[in-house]
Design a protein around this nucleic acid. Structure first.
Length: 569
DNA sequence: CGTGTCTGCCC
DNA sequence: ATTCTGC
DNA sequence: GCAGAATGGGCAGACACG
């Protein structure tokens, strides 16, 4: 297939905001793709070159794309970045500069999707010295044989950011529309096949053959599975209202997700939320599993949480994050930063999928098959109740134990891989807040192109009469001006305060004060104040406050200490 | 061989 | 992670 | 209510470069 044909589909999809329209466009394309041998083209619709379960990486992102574009077009990197600031999309920058370039050279238009896939697939294979140069040549080869539009999407795929408003949900609907009759049963069949396979090319092939083939897709222990995600609850009461009574309450641990598998051969495999395998990083966990769970095959969902080996106090996420991508000194880390596995679900057990079993059954089974060993592996702390007071107490205890809050679950719900569902809620305590002054900003990309979109925040160091950076915030502002403090409004306020511009970043005079809410304060190696905020959000302007009225460094430090000690006021 | 930059992925 | 928005 | 997009801190590892 000519790459040009695919790009025309991308353009159509980008132009049409309606999901129904997108589905129709895509399904028409898929009808053509049915006759193509290479179904991998569907990965290109996802903005990738590999199925979801693949751990392959391009190793290319913004900076190398800028470099590649500069090389292919003959325009300086600085100029490319300037255009990027204005246009907010490196893909569109590529379109512009390559179109200009093309006007000056003769070129024949024969780039195929196969060639694009081919070069993309070579990127993850390159390792060692000279890698970057080799990658540059592979990209340049594609860019120089591209039209403007083709260049645009080559770059966007390299950035894994297609911006055509299409993700797996829309592709799922398009697969149904192109291969089967459009109804709930078929949509469910495609979704469930995808949940188990994590490979849309494979699902598409099966869908072409019919619903029977889709339903044959098996859940296989040892193959990664997407995890189910939670929505937010506002309170215990809200939780009860939404999941019903009685409800299941469990600790929400401040660690990271682990999908633990034991396959047919008895081999334990551990996957993260994004389907990366981390078995090698956690030999301790493998041991705990082998010693404390007696079953032939299974898939468990769990949270690994770190603790201090001496004091046995739970540690914040930041500390154990060292272990996740570790390749060296694993044994040392195993001793210094042990993890406790808190298992909260079982999705497969001794040859059978439990995805459609009610949660009550799964959690009961779970408690039978795990030998609880504190500081190693255990089923997660749980309370099943219809009593709001008891639930409140449980929640408070979770916070006292240094955890983030609680999960609230419905007893009858199935397990939906990859979905964010209303029968599994998370509840965290009210947010902390600071007033901070904006001392810098960055121009946005995509739908935020042309406006400032990320804002550098500073506190005030009274002793030295200086403003010190403590992080950046972006989310919380409105897209539309009528709705409240918007990106446009804040940009207009900051525009005449700009003192320097480099690339997409600007420095502004400390003038505008905003209210920030955040979950936690952490020590920061990045920011000059030495601290950073975890999950910061902007809520509103504080026009009544002058820059020197913002949170002081001293207050930040006090707050940090207070949080560490969990003092309640 | 040490350092800085970049990427990808945890939250 | 959080948040906002279009459908 | 779902799906999608745009953004936060910080970690390890890989590579380039001096």
């Amino acid at each position: 297939m000519l790459y040009k044909e695919l790009c025309e589909i991308y353009e159509e999809l980008e132009k049409n905001p309606s999901r129904l329209a997108k589905t129709t466009i895509l399904s028409n394309f898929l009808k053509k793709l049915k006759h193509e041998k290479n179904k991998e083209i569907i990965y290109l619709i996802q903005g990738k070159a590999f199925p979801d379960y693949s751990e392959k990486e391009f190793g290319i992102s913004e900076q190398l794309c800028i470099k590649a574009l500069s090389k292919a077009s003959g325009i300086s990197s600085k100029e490319i970045v300037n255009k990027w600031r204005k246009i907010g999309d490196l893909g569109k920058v590529a379109e512009e500069v390559m179109t200009k370039k093309k006007q000056n050279t003769l070129f024949s238009h024969k780039l195929t999707t196969e060639k694009v896939l081919d070069n993309l697939k070579k990127l993850p294979e390159l390792i060692g010295k000279g890698t970057v140069d080799k990658k540059m040549s592979l990209i340049s080869e594609l860019l120089t044989s591209s039209s403007g539009i083709e260049a645009k999407y080559i770059i966007r795929i390299l950035l894994s950011d297609l911006r055509i408003g299409v993700a797996s949900g829309t592709i799922r609907d398009a697969i149904v529309e192109s291969c089967l009759e459009k109804n709930e049963e078929n949509t469910k069949a495609v979704q469930e096949s995808y949940d188990k396979a994590n490979d849309l090319a494979l699902v598409f092939e099966k869908a072409c053959k019919g619903i029977g083939s889709l339903n044959e897709t098996e859940l296989i222990p040892g193959h990664p599975l997407k995890v189910m995600l939670a929505l937010k609850a506002e309170s215990i009461q809200d939780g009860f209202e939404r999941v019903g009574k009685p409800a299941v309450f469990e600790y929400k641990y401040d660690g990271f997700r682990m999908l633990i598998n034991k396959d047919e051969k008895g081999k334990v495999k551990i996957f993260t939320r994004r389907l990366d395998e981390v078995t090698k990083q956690f030999p301790d966990v493998v041991k705990y599993i082998e010693e404390n769970i007696d079953a032939k095959t299974f898939i468990l969902d769990s949270e690994a949480v770190g603790y201090d080996p001496k004091t046995k106090r739970y540690k914040p996420f930041q500390d154990i994050s060292q272990r996740i991508r570790r390749k060296y000194d694993i044994e040392k880390l195993e001793k210094e930063l042990p993890v406790e596995i808190n298992v909260f679900d079982v999705l497969y057990y001794n040859g059978k999928s439990l995805l459609n079993e009610p949660f009550q059954k799964r959690t009961e089974l779970l408690r039978k098959i795990i030998k609880n060993k504190k500081y190693r592996i255990q089923s997660s702390h749980q309370l099943i109740t219809d009593d709001e007071k008891k639930a409140e107490e449980f929640y408070k205890q979770a916070l006292k134990d240094n955890q983030e809050g609680v999960m609230i679950k419905n007893l009858t719900a199935p397990y939906k891989p990859g979905a964010r569902v209303g029968y599994m809620l998370k509840l965290k305590p009210a947010e902390n807040e600071f007033d901070l002054v904006i001392t810098g900003a960055e121009y946005g990309t995509g739908k935020r192109a042309g406006t400032l979109s990320s804002f550098t925040l500073s506190c005030y160091d009274k002793a030295n009469d200086k403003f010190l950076e403590i992080g950046k915030a972006s989310t919380g502002l409105k897209e539309k001006e009528e709705e409240g403090l918007s990106y446009t409004e804040l940009t207009n306020l900051l525009k005449h305060l700009i003192t320097h511009e480099t690339g997409r970043e600007v420095i502004v005079k400390p003038k505008i004060v905003v209210r920030i809410i955040y979950q936690n304060i952490q020590r920061s190696p990045t920011y000059e104040s030495g601290f950073a905020l975890r999950f910061p959000r902007i809520t509103h302007l504080r026009p009544d406050r002058t820059p020197k009225d913002v949170a002081t460094l001293k207050e930040v430090i006090e707050e940090y200490k207070r949080m560490e000690l969990k003092i309640e006021y």
